[in-house]
Design a protein around this nucleic acid. Sequence first.
RNA 1: CAAGCAGACUCGACGGUCGCGGGCGGUAACGAAAGGACCCGUCUGAGGAAAGUCCGGGCUCCGCAGGGCAAGGGUGCCGGGUAACACCCGGUGAAGGUGACUUCCAGGAAAGUGCAACAGAAAACAACCGCCCGUUCUACGGGUAAGGAUGAAAAGGCGAGGUAAGAGCUCACCGGCAUUGCGGUAACGUAAUGGCCGUGUAAACCCCACCCGGAGCAACACCGUUAUGGGCCGCAUGGCUUGCCCGGCCGGCCUGAGGUGGCUCGAUUUCGGCAGUGAUGUUGAAACUAGAUAGAUGACCGUCUUAAACGACAGAACCCGGCUUACAGGCCUGCUUGGACC
RNA 2: GGCCCCUUGGUCAAGCGGUUAAGACACGGCCCUUUCACGGCUGCGACACGAGUUCGAUUCUCGUAGGGGUCA
Length: 140
Amino acid sequence: MKDSFSVKNHYEFRRAYNKGLRKGGRYMVVNVLRSSRENSRLGLSVSRKFGNSVQRNRFKRLVRESFRKIRGDLKGNFDIFVTARFSERAAANPQRKLRAVYVPSSSEVHRDLVRILRTLGVLAYENANDDPEPGSRAET
RNA sequence: CAAGCAGACUCGACGGUCGCGGGCGGUAACGAAAGGACCCGUCUGAGGAAAGUCCGGGCUCCGCAGGGCAAGGGUGCCGGGUAACACCCGGUGAAGGUGACUUCCAGGAAAGUGCAACAGAAAACAACCGCCCGUUCUACGGGUAAGGAUGAAAAGGCGAGGUAAGAGCUCACCGGCAUUGCGGUAACGUAAUGGCCGUGUAAACCCCACCCGGAGCAACACCGUUAUGGGCCGCAUGGCUUGCCCGGCCGGCCUGAGGUGGCUCGAUUUCGGCAGUGAUGUUGAAACUAGAUAGAUGACCGUCUUAAACGACAGAACCCGGCUUACAGGCCUGCUUGGACC
RNA sequence: GGCCCCUUGGUCAAGCGGUUAAGACACGGCCCUUUCACGGCUGCGACACGAGUUCGAUUCUCGUAGGGGUCA
């Protein structure tokens, strides 16, 4: 993620949590704040409780990919903060670590993010069928 | 063919579209220039465990550049390998398996101390019952470790001789120990002789031999910012090594935008030759193979593989050598046992 | 990323290798009281997990898991 598209400073996260619009989805909670910059930015937060480093990294990559697709469709410039949501599925085997967290697929993450942003009214289009995601929807 | 043993390799492949980190080159804005992008081109981009942080080293700083003592920790059959190790290799011994082979923190209990609950007469200077002998005979004294009972463990095992009853008291075999000879670098093996004496525990203290200064890349260095600031403690404490002694120095401690270097050419990787049973050593040729800093590998499509589904464990953070732990499959080599056929 | 520490009932916690695993609070029952509280009696309930050493492990050793602290 290029620097101008990502939010890193702690105080900016704090400001978004206090003042931004908030909406929770199935896999994430999103805070949105209108930005005066020349482009929109993305801030990511994934707790260690979400899973091991492979699972955390994968979630962040999927969110970045989804953000990249819809970046041009926003009604202006926003700072979008995504916090991963996790549910500790009761592990079938109690000896196992508490890592039995479901990591959603790419299309699930994308659908979730689009729905939340549409509800918050920051996407330029209103209809879900206008979803610009490429070929992945092709049913075979 | 079946069951198994040991070792090695791999971690989907190929193509396409979009996207990301790093190197190199170029260019736009901006700059007098040097330069310089999030733009363009090109090359390149996670593991066998990257993990746990359990050992060993490199590297950096402190100490050694004041001296000493004591602790503390580690290793533990023998020989070899290595930068080093607690690792590896080859042996020895013990245990398990028909076997291939596997497993073992494997020194000392005759230097000393401690502990061994309950049960039992007794847990290491053995006499409760029993057996034998004697006497003043329902008792006492003496002898005795064959038998009983307890226990995790009971005073080498078993048989014969022997005896009042017994006992390694004597003898054969087995086991242990010591001495000597022989083989072996050694651990040890083996033969002869000797006497029979002492349970277990050292992952109890300990003894013996050998090894170890402390801290860690958030180290450390530089630039910038600042602080000649703010707060706390205080006259004998605090810091400089875990403790102590002597000596020395300094009042002490806390509080903080950032950036750059360290940062990847190294006990490196690949393919061979030679030496060695092997670990490994040596030598020749070739190669350069992540370097991020909230942290780069992802998404989608097609074909192949598959009964079907991309599908286990899992993400470098200064770097190496090991160990340990997690793990779905695939594939190759050698060997063992059993069966069938020729 | 490095370096340390801890794990015993619901909570806080003692514990020489041999205990019925001490105790306190909490919880249940009974007594006391007109009732509640206090107090008394009584009960329930635990050694994180897996191996090893040992006759015997909460304790000693090794590994695993979980939790916590600290360093720019």
